[in-house]
Design a binder for these strands. Structure first.
Length: 580
RNA sequence: GCACCCAUAGCUCAGCUGGAUAGAGCGUCGCCCUCCGAAGGCGAAGGCCUCAGGUUCGAAUCCUGAUGGGUGCGCCA
């Protein structure tokens, strides 16, 4: 149930009627016609721009069209008034009974209220986190993980068939570095003094891995060369790191449908197949790139390389896919990975990257465009930095000093719910300030608390009502008389609830889960507002002397709680029933 | 030098993809606890939406350019 689409259908049918009687010409494009809540509530419940967008093609004055539409639309029983305003807006007021039907609709559909069929079951692949398997996840990864996870849930709620996927970079040189670092820790476990040279990972999290390796292989790798141990240590170490990362993700409540190994692309002909596909399209050639202007590297010299003609698909320069020694560049397995995704039949791909990979977007889009013949859209969401604060003071993070903050640190400090919600209250492309103290502060300016508190308040009222002998089951509340909810503050809250299905579609369409968090904060604010009105006006309180009236009032409160709970569910946050 | 992202109240940020008089929280100022939860509530002040052009009925939103900030730029992933 989406009132906005219902009313839009009403507007369109009115347009059709006007066409039938010859007031409006045939063949008008009605796609730009929108029905939305006006910014100013004085303008009514809904406003349509129909007259203004049709004026030009119909060669009529907007206000004339609006007048004609108004007469038609006003005759519908759902509409209590239709007036023309401003340059040609048509402002509609809806019958209170329409709004009063909302709590019942919410109670009957429960957490599924607002679920949309918009996606029509289209298959979407969301790739996120994809951190190198060389260490624990840090705060930057955390934001990407939360974002990707919430986006996936949002798309699911909007009717898409979603796959959550993690790409393991276990094929490149960095896992060799990891292996060498673990080997040093292994030597250390055997009592040897070791030194961590540049290009190794000195992190202490590898000590335990070194010891575990010792338990496993004993002294078999002592006094041997890399050719003996590198492969085995590499496989062992990356498996250990992935276990660690899986644990980190589990702490946050993030689960993946699939982990895709980069290594599985090597030696299996899969990279070759992807490149071959590009070659068939005439997009692979041998050539020499121009040096970048203005910032030519010291050691620049022209080299002939195997290149992908990504400029054919919107990139700025063609990209090398093979090094001069014949090995693949890092780009090639990525092409093969996305080729695999395209071949798995997804209708849409989404990649969630850190903002430092911004320069990588165009070539990835070019690759997907080429591989799918422009059929599979790829949306790349860049996640900006997280700045950490404690007591308002910036929290310095340095990998070299070993003081980088891990996902585990954050979750252990504030909990998964707070971590997730805070990270979703900002647009993905805006930097985020994360203050440890504010995050757990229980006050108005902490949106996590504010939304949770609204939910807990409703639960509290329901407990009280139940103690007084009032039946507050969803079935009983759904049967309550909702026509008594006629106060402007109550109607306002119902109007807010009516936005939920629409908000889901807007947020899903834009791949913007933060809109859910922002909107939940508004909904909570409206509920708290109504609650506070109860201080001055006892008739607005949820608990009334008369059980039947209590049920009516609580039906509205409960509906709000159901939607908050569903919204938090999309964000992966547990609604609290009590916060004392 | 080039590409991408960003610029909205003193501060931190929303702004429903082009709609009407641009919003919220914090901070500031003034009121308010006998009241279902005062870890709060009500109200006020606060704006050249960085700047300059353009597109159109209409621009914070779209296009061009400028300024300021971030990120990246051929055998590192």
């Amino acid at each position: 149930m989406n009132l906005f689409t219902d009313i839009r259908a009403l507007v369109l049918s009115a347009i059709g009627a006007l066409q039938a009687e010859g007031t409006l010409p045939e063949g008008l494009n009605t796609a730009p016609v929108t029905v939305e809540p006006p910014r100013d509530p004085l303008h009514g419940d809904m406003a349509t721009n129909a007259a203004m967008v049709l004026a030009k093609p119909a060669r009529l004055k907007p206000r004339d069209i609006a007048e004609a539409l108004a007469t038609r639309i006003a005759s519908d029983p759902r509409v209590s008034s239709a007036e023309v305003a401003g340059p040609g807006f048509l402002n509609l007021r809806l019958a209170p009974s329409l709004w009063q039907a909302l709590p019942r609709a919410v109670l009957d559909r429960g957490a599924d209220f607002g679920r949309s069929g918009m996606g029509q079951g289209a298959k979407v692949n969301v790739e996120y986190v994809s951190a190198n398997p060389t260490g624990p996840l840090h705060v930057g990864h955390t934001r990407g993980a939360v974002f990707g996870d919430a986006l996936a849930s949002l798309l699911d709620f909007a009717g898409y068939e979603v796959t959550r996927e993690y790409y393991i970079n276990d094929g490149g040189a960095q896992v060799d570095v990891l292996a060498r670092s673990v080997y040093l820790r292994y030597l250390e476990a055997h009592g040897q003094a070791v030194e961590f040279a540049d290009g190794t990972y000195p992190g202490e999290y590898l000590i335990a891995v070194g010891e575990k390796l010792k338990e496993r292989v004993g002294d078999r790798f002592l006094n041997t060369g890399e050719q003996v141990w590198l492969e085995e240590v590499r496989d062992f170490a990356t498996a250990e790191m992935m276990d660690l990362i899986r644990e980190d993700l589990a702490m946050l409540g993030v689960r993946m449908d699939r982990f895709f190994s980069e290594k599985s692309l090597y030696g299996t002909g899969r990279i070759e197949a992807a490149i071959e596909s590009l070659k068939d399209k005439g997009l692979i050639y041998r050539g020499v790139l121009e040096p970048p202007k203005g910032k030519t590297p010291e050691d620049w010299e022209p080299r002939e390389q195997t290149l992908f003609k990504s400029t054919e698909h919107g990139d700025d320069v063609d990209r090398p896919i093979m090094k001069s020694d014949g090995a693949w560049t890092y780009f090639s397995p990525d092409i093969a990975y996305h080729y695999d995704k395209v071949q798995r039949g997804y209708d849409q791909l989404i990649d969630v990257f850190g903002a430092d990979h911004g320069g990588y977007v165009k070539r990835m889009k070019a690759a997907v465009s080429a591989l799918s013949d422009g059929q599979t859209p790829l949306d790349v969401k860049l996640i900006q930095l997280v700045k950490l604060f404690k007591n308002g003071e910036p929290f310095k993070m340095s990998k070299r000093a070993g003081t980088f903050v891990t996902l585990r640190d954050v979750v252990e400090e504030v909990g998964p719910d707070v971590t997730r919600f805070v990270m979703l209250t900002r647009k993905n492309d805006a930097p985020l300030d994360f203050d440890f103290d504010k995050a757990i502060e229980q006050s108005r300016d902490n949106p996590v608390f504010y939304v949770q508190y609204a939910h807990a308040r409703v639960c509290s009222v329901m407990r009280k009502a139940a103690q007084a002998g009032v039946d507050v089951s969803d079935a009983a509340l759904s049967a309550a008389d909702l026509s008594v909810l006629s106060h402007e503050a109550e109607l306002g809250l119902m109007k807010k609830l009516a936005e939920w299905p629409r908000l889901i579609e807007i947020a899903a369409k834009g791949h913007e889960p933060h809109k859910v968090a922002i909107w939940l904060n508004e909904l909570a604010s409206d509920l708290h507002g109504l609650w506070n009105r109860g201080h001055d006006d006892p008739t607005l309180r949820f608990l009334q002397d008369d059980p039947a009236t209590s049920q009516s009032k609580i039906a509205l409160a409960r509906a709000v709680a159901v939607v908050i709970s569903a919204g938090l569910g999309i964000l992966g946050v547990t609604p609290m029933e009590e916060m004392r």
